[in-house]
Design a protein around this nucleic acid. Structure first.
Length: 325
DNA sequence: AATAATCCCAACCGCAAGCAA
DNA sequence: GTTGCTTGCGGTTGGGATTAT
């Protein structure tokens, strides 16, 4: 009954690929193409399973791949798209020529998430931590606030711990940006360092007050006043603030299906980390499908609908490799 | 210099979609 | 409509490289 496994586990090699294996795979694909991955390792004389070959090719060997560092423009694109589609790496990667979903995912997890956290922005909702705290504090009765704030902090704990325990967050500018000498560069190179410790202390204070004195705590954006950038329009739905760091304007986007402005309807916390949608990172389903519908099924094939009339979405459509609207 | 801690990324795993028989 | 195979995707992990102590 069960499916035949994609490969005989006993006879396949695993782990790092050797240059010889790379050569075999590349030359075979150059000659025969990538049809039927199951047969490729056998025909190419590789003791690998087809899946492993496919991954090696798509993530590393493909000649059109870029292997260098991500540029500021690429990072900006990732952040913007992530604020809309969440962890749908293939969609994001499709807008970045030469980058794979694995590249994008790794870069997000290792760099961009921390970068946003370091800027005081929740990488899941793309809203400032302070705003999320403010929403919690202002929408609930005081007795409930402390508990919910604590829960929120649990969701953010990885990012916050990183922020609070790091002596400094790496905001190094690329040399090109340093040459531009814009306001962000000034802030990052100069004030950032001298305010790091001060800022961390203020955040610590604010967070402890969030729990202990929920009704007097917010808005916490005051914390940022002395540290350089300030969030604007925090009293509204937080849809507009600009935060120039490391050469990119951070302009958070909203989900087109955002209903009530609550961060909770677009992020779900699972344990110590938050994901958008379900645990697989898929967007929440619009309605029950009944029975065993797989969460991603409809979602994956639906065209992604952006707020085309929203000024939040400012990636010119002609810059998109595969316009999604 | 040695060791520990952390970072980073390639590779793996398992689920789900699409398709053909 | 069902079954089984291939492909695509996102989450997770292992281990080498780098940094801190």
């Amino acid at each position: 009954m069960g499916r035949i496994p994609c490969c005989e586990k006993d006879n396949v090699k695993r782990g790092q690929w050797t240059p010889e294996e790379d050569n075999k795979l590349s030359s075979y694909i150059a000659q025969h193409g990538t049809r039927n991955w199951r047969l490729i390792p056998k025909n190419a004389g590789l003791q690998r399973c087809g899946k492993s070959c496919r991954l090696r090719w798509t993530n590393y060997l493909r000649p059109d791949l870029k292997h260098g560092q991500f540029s500021d423009a690429e990072e900006q694109t990732i952040v913007k798209l992530h604020s809309i589609v969440g962890n749908r790496w293939s969609i994001i990667a499709a807008q970045l020529p030469g980058r794979t979903d694995n590249d994008v995912k790794n870069h997000w997890n290792t760099k961009l998430k921390k970068k946003l956290s370091g800027m005081g922005i929740d990488p899941v909702t793309h809203k400032p931590f302070s705003h999320l705290m403010a929403e919690i504090a202002t929408t609930l009765e005081p007795p409930q606030v402390a508990h919910l704030a604590e829960a929120a902090l649990g969701c953010f704990k990885d990012e916050m711990l990183h922020l609070l325990t790091k002596r400094r967050v790496d905001f190094q500018l690329q040399q090109s940006n340093a040459a531009i000498g814009n306001a962000a560069a000034t802030y990052i190179n100069g004030k950032q360092e001298e305010h790091d410790d001060d800022t961390i202390e203020k955040i610590k204070l604010g967070l402890s007050r969030a729990i202990q004195e929920p009704d007097v705590l917010l808005p916490m954006n005051k914390l940022w006043d002395s540290a350089g950038p300030t969030f604007s329009n925090l009293s509204g739905n937080c849809s507009a603030f600009s935060f120039p760091v490391s050469g990119f304007q951070y302009e958070p986007l909203t989900f087109s299906n955002e209903r009530d402005g609550s961060p909770w309807n677009q992020s779900m916390c699972t344990g110590s980390t938050c994901t958008v949608g379900d645990r697989q990172g898929r967007l929440p389903e619009k309605e029950e499908n009944g029975g065993e519908s797989r969460a991603g099924k409809e979602i994956r094939n639906e065209p992604i609908v952006f707020n085309s009339d929203s000024d939040l979405w400012d990636l010119p459509s002609d810059e998109l490799m595969h316009p999604i609207v």
